[in-house]
Amino acid sequence: MKYTEDHEWMRLEDDLIIVGITEHAATQLGDIVFVELPEIETQTAKGDEVVVIESVKAASDILAPLDGEIVEVNQALIDAPALVNEDPTGAAWFFKLKVDDTAVLDDFMDEDAYKALID
């Protein structure tokens, strides 16, 4: 798993990059009550606001970590936003991204580097 400085995780599966938020981010945000997902086939640029998540207290944006095309979104989060708190790095993935070259992942933090960031 790779990590961004915006507290997102990325995992490579079947040549697609699966994106979610870290347990640390989910804890900091608190109880998630609403998730708004992008349309599939959306072309995104790194830094685009692609997902809105809202806790009891506030709304936050999740940014696209890379340039690419959103090819799948996790519809389960619409009816069960609390999944983000329950299983942030598993069942609560947000979207799958198709990129030109998955080697771009090498530029991101590994788990040790991310742990050092949040400690």
Partner: peptide
Amino acid sequence: CFQAWTEGASDADLSARDACA
């Protein structure tokens, strides 16, 4: 808040965004 979140490179920033929220 959005700015603090997007620039959130550290725990301190994330907390600031959270507080700002």
